[in-house]
Every structure is written in structure tokens, then in C-alpha cells.
Design a protein around this nucleic acid. Structure first.
Lengths: 353, 353
DNA sequence: TTTTGGCACTCTCTGGCGCTGAGTGCCAAA
DNA sequence: TTTGGCACTCAGCGCCAGAGAGTGCCAAAA
């Protein structure tokens, strides 16, 4: 019994922690099962391999480690990684050159459109980490409406142009049952703009309902038309989506070299649905988050981890960005990179808006 | 000497042609080097394997075949495939169910936006062929301008909305050095619309230059502004781009199972540049085209073939669509599919415009 | 009581070996 | 000109033995 030694949040004495940390550090670095000899050499603990072996046995029993087979070294389990990222990990300061690059490419260039900013962000994430970088599109729901305009498109089609805060422009084609002249639509636009400018979509919807009720009786034709057009244009739900870069980086990791799994993963990126559900969770969380291996609850990501952070426009969380890579990733390096990129992306969007 | 036998465009007697065709058919079907015995059985020629071997030797010397090693069967070279697709191949009629699906998904649903139509087309191509499907965006240059509108965005930014024939709407953010009121921009829009409606971009550019010269002296401030804004909005060159679907299908082909090559290929799809250059050639050609293996002149496609066909809007070729897969693909099946899809895509775009 | 050296054991990995089967090229006979 | 026969080549497979890495356990040392 080692009841006397310092215990810690995980019911693990200090030595066990050092050993676990060393093992995971080595494994992340080399990608191969780690043996007692290596840990004895690198932990700084001044213990013989035999002693380390005893400790390893305990850690394995507690479910932090496992060995692929009898005579290989040991490998961290998801549980092992969990304590590692939660309390063992020492975050590396971000590389100065990389930070400079992020700032230069994201914030310094004001001429970028929103789409370009998002593309750049995911490209930078993937480039710096050598894994896949994902950025969800900002949720319009959270953004203020800055302008609305209707243009005649054809007999039965009207083009709605919605301009939001944060460089966001959207086009919607609205089918209508009579034709409108440019002048009519101009009036409609003016009327709606006077009502809605600066409000968020949710507020606008409320205002629309209110307006419909208020003017039911004494509503003139123009106003009725305006309200109807606006309803249609705004009713389509916020389609969640994301941009991804560096997918193919994932092909370089031997733990993902199984072509079947890789294919499933790539298909999942393309299908987007499940992926978005996962990223939505990260959005709700409102702060940096890490899913390790099976924790995501999403099969194709069983051998992957997702490091995510939400980004803000106007103080509101509007999207998340994430790095996806093998469970064995350099969390110390990736976490701060994701974090700072989220912040920079936020300010890039604020500033270009 | 077999000077007496019927010779053909390729200086190959009839028997040699039958043998080559049979061999390629078998190879496409089974994916393994084909031996003399198999050909004797399947060609319907009623010759012994030994005779076939003689003919094979000739074909190999002429560069239509090669053998991976002494005791394997034979495999077509690029040159072999070339004569196969050019003159040996018997095109299969397209499967009725697949044709029905294409029509249903592309043409029948009028509510699709342009983007959705293109996505659907590439998805269908890849779905039916089990390879990668690519569709380039229609070139705006060829499309008529239907409407132009300017909206104030912020102090120094104006939003230009360009509406083209064929469901195409584009937003451009234009930086300006003074602020404009909505009313001013409205006038500008009206003025420009009166000038340009119905013209193609090239014509509009000409008209702009003309307008600049004509009114140099007596041009009022508004017109000057209008012409300047329009120049900026229209100067940005037509950015070529494409949508792709079913990339991951390519992972299933054993001839592409080399992870290095696969990665290079995927990166090329993402980088797009070289790919677009290739597709541009197909666009110039104005008719169906096939690049086999190294013929594309583009390294990452060395083991792939590209079957492409241009599509038309208003009788004008505006883009191409293509299927990309391993050199060993079922050309008889793929060619008609690409062809018919191109036609259907064209009518889908015409109709939704 | 904890640590350590020693030791037997287990398991993967690699390379060598020989066999099998498929397919070839060539030759002489039909 | 075609064909059967034959020797030859070569990839693929299974098998085996040796090397190397790492383990678990035990008894001795600290």
C-alpha cells in the first residue's frame, strides 16, 4: 500500500503522474509503444527500469495504459490521454514565426472577403499543425442585419440580397406569384430597411410577426407585400456549414493508414452532417474543447482527436474552428494554436465588417 | 509477313485488333494481367493459346501492350488504350434507371439554384460511375448581364450585385474613396442598367471604354462615378473554379492504392490550378475528350484517365464536366454517361435561368 | 518496505528457403 | 500458318529459425 504518498485529483501518486506524462510525451514524439527502459532514461526520476515496470503495471490496471501485445511497450488509452490533457500537459508557447504568420495573413490584410478569411483560417490551421483544419461558417442568427434589398430577377422570381454585420452577404431567390417592377421592390426594400436595420435575425422575425398583427386591418398592399417577401426571404433556416483544409495531411499518419477507415473519414468530411453535430457541441460549450478518440461518440473519429475553440464576433460566439488529427497529436502545441487562431479570426471578422 | 491480311487505321490486322480488344475488355473487367489462355477462351477466335501468344508478341513489340514481369499476363499501355477508345470500343447504351435518375434529379426539379444544379451534376457523375465527378463553374464571360445594382455597405465599401443569365448571381465588394448614399447608388445603378442590360461581359467592357471616351469632356460627376464603379466591379477576371464529388471513390481502386500518389492526387484536387488548366483544354476542344494516363501531361494523373464533355448554355459552351478515375476504367460505360450528363446539365441551366 | 538486478518467457519482425502455379518464348511437327 | 510440347521465369505463399525488444516475477540489496 502506498497510502502515504501524495495523492492527486486522479488518485494517482506523483510518481505515477510523472511516468504517465513521460510515456505520453514519448509516444506522441515517436509514435511507438514506450518501454520501461525509455521512461527510466527520460523521466528524470532516477529509477531502474524494473521499478518503472511496477508502476506501469499499476497504470495499466487502472486503465490509463495498454500494451498492444506482451512484448511491446505501452500505449496510452483514451483515459490516459484524458488526464494528460486535463492536468499533466504543459502548454507550449506558440512559435513566434507562426504567430506572426497568423497575424499577417488573417488580420493585417483588410481586403479579404469573409469567405477568404474563413478559408485562410482553416488553411493556416492545417498548415501549421500538419493536420486537418476546420472552420464553421458564422451563424447568421447571431449577426445584425445591416441591409435588405429586393431586385427583380424574372417574371416569377425576386432576388433578395441580405447584408449582415461581419462581411456577410447572402443572396436568396424568392419565387413569387406575380411580377414586380423595380420601383415597387425599391419601395419594399426601403420600408423594410427602416424597420429592421441593426436588428438580429431573431428580432427581425419577431418584428415581422408583430408588424403583421399590428397592421392587419389598415395594411396597404405595399406593406403586405413587403412583409410577405421578407418572411419568405428570412424563413429559410440558417444552414450550418464549414470549410476544411488539409484533409490529405491525415493520410500521412500511420495510425490512419487503414484505407477503409480513411475513406470513411473523408466521406464524413464531405457529408458534413455528423461533423456539424459534433462541432455544434463545441459551439454550445462556449470555450475550448477537446474530444479524444471515441469520446466524440462518432465512429469514424475513433482514432482521431478534435481540438476546438469557438470564435466571436461582437462578443457573441458565432462559430467554431477545430483541428482534427490522430489521437496521438502534439496537444501542447495544437491547443494554443487553435486558441489564438480563434481569437484572431474573431478580430479579422469584426474588423472587416 | 502478313501483308495480305486486311490492314486498318493502326496498321494492325483484324485479328490483332480483336485480340487487343478482348485483352483490354478482360483487363478492365478483372484488373489483372491477361494471359494467352484467357484470350483464346474469350475472343471467339478459335485459336490456340500458342497462336495468341505470337500475336501478343507482335502487339507488345508495337507498344500496345506490356508485361509487368516475365510470367505474368499482359497489360495495355497508354497507346493500347488509345486505339481502344478511338476505334475498338463499343459504347454501351446507358442504363435506363440511371438515365431516369439523371433526368429526375437534374432537370425535373426547377427549384434548384445554380450551385445546387452543379453540385447535383458532379454528385450524380461520381455516384453512377463510382469515380470522381467534376464540374467547372459556367464562365461568366459567356453569359449575358441581366442586372447590376450597387448598395452602400460601409463608409468605404460598396456592394455590387451582378445578375447574369442562367441563375448566376455574384456579389463583389468594391472599395471606394468616399462614401455614397443609397440614393446616389440607386441612380448609378439605373444609369448602368440602361446601358448594359442583355450584353455579355466583354461587350459591357467595350461599352464602358467607349462611354469613358465619348463623355470625357461633358461627363457629369454621377456618370463618371458610375463608369468607375462599374469598371472596378467588372474588372476582376472570371475566376475559374469547379466542384468535385466522390474523390474518396478513388481510394477503392487498387491501382491507386499507393498512399503517396493518392495524397498527391487529392492535393491537386484541392489546389485546383493545374486541374483547371487541364479542364480548360477540354473546354477549348468544344467536344467530348479523353485523356489517358500520361497524355494529360500532368504527373499526378499518370495513373488516371479523364473523360470530359463540355456543356452549353444558350448554345454557347460555358463549362465542362468530367469523370476522373484509374486508367483502367469502363470507358464504354463512362463515355455515354458523361455525354448525356453534359447535355442534361445544359438544359437544366437554361431552364432555370 | 522499496528498489533493483537477474532471468525466463513471450511476441513481433525479418530473411531465407522451397514449393506451386501461371504464363511465357521457342521449336519442331502438323 | 497453326499447334502441342517443353524448359524456363517469376510472384506469392507458407514455414521456420534467429534476433531483438520488452515483460513479469523473484530474490537479494538498500
Amino acid at each position: 500500500m502506498r497510502m502515504m504518498s501524495t495523492t492527486t485529483p486522479h488518485g494517482m501518486n506523483e510518481r505515477a503522474q510523472v511516468i504517465l506524462k513521460t510515456l505520453i510525451d514519448c509516444f506522441i514524439r515517436d509514435g511507438e509503444p514506450v518501454g520501461s527502459r525509455t521512461i527510466a532514461r527520460e523521466s528524470g526520476l532516477d529509477l531502474s527500469p524494473a521499478s518503472i515496470r511496477n508502476a506501469l503495471l499499476d497504470l495499466e490496471e487502472q486503465g490509463y495504459l495498454q500494451s498492444p501485445h506482451t512484448s511491446a511497450g505501452r500505449v496510452p488509452t483514451v483515459r490516459g490521454y484524458r488526464v494528460f490533457v486535463d492536468s499533466l500537459l504543459t502548454v507550449q508557447p506558440i512559435d513566434a514565426a507562426q504567430l506572426a504568420m497568423l497575424e499577417r495573413e488573417l488580420v493585417a490584410d483588410e481586403a479579404l472577403t469573409r469567405q477568404q478569411v474563413l478559408d485562410t483560417a482553416s488553411r493556416l490551421l492545417s498548415g501549421i499543425t500538419h493536420m486537418a483544419g476546420v472552420v464553421t461558417l458564422p451563424r447568421r442568427e447571431q449577426l445584425g442585419l445591416r441591409h435588405i434589398e429586393f431586385l427583380p430577377l424574372s417574371e416569377r422570381q425576386v432576388l433578395a440580397v441580405l447584408v449582415f454585420d461581419g462581411q456577410e452577404v447572402q443572396n436568396r431567390i424568392v419565387r413569387v406569384d406575380r411580377s414586380f417592377t423595380a420601383a415597387e421592390l425599391q419601395q419594399v426594400s426601403n420600408y423594410l430597411n427602416s424597420l429592421f436595420i441593426g436588428k438580429g435575425i431573431a428580432q427581425v422575425r419577431e418584428a415581422l410577426v408583430e408588424e403583421m398583427r399590428r397592421t392587419r386591418a389598415d395594411m396597404d398592399a405595399l406593406m403586405r407585400t413587403a412583409v410577405e417577401l421578407a418572411s419568405v426571404a428570412l424563413e429559410a433556416p440558417d444552414e450550418a456549414d464549414y470549410v476544411i483544409a488539409g484533409q490529405s495531411n491525415l493520410m500521412d499518419f500511420k495510425e490512419l493508414s487503414d484505407i477503409e477507415k480513411l475513406r470513411a473519414l473523408f466521406d464524413a468530411f464531405t457529408a458534413k452532417r455528423e461533423m456539424l453535430r459534433l462541432l455544434d457541441q463545441a459551439l454550445e460549450a462556449q470555450s475550448a474543447q477537446i474530444f479524444i478518440g471515441e469520446e466524440s461518440g462518432y465512429r469514424v473519429l475513433d482514432d482521431c482527436s478534435v481540438v476546438s475553440a469557438p470564435y466571436r464576433v461582437d462578443g457573441q460566439v458565432v462559430g467554431v474552428l477545430a483541428v482534427i488529427g490522430p489521437t496521438r497529436m502534439a496537444y501542447q502545441r495544437v491547443i494554443p494554436i487553435v486558441d489564438i487562431t480563434a481569437r484572431l479570426l474573431g478580430s479579422a471578422l469584426n474588423l472587416s465588417g
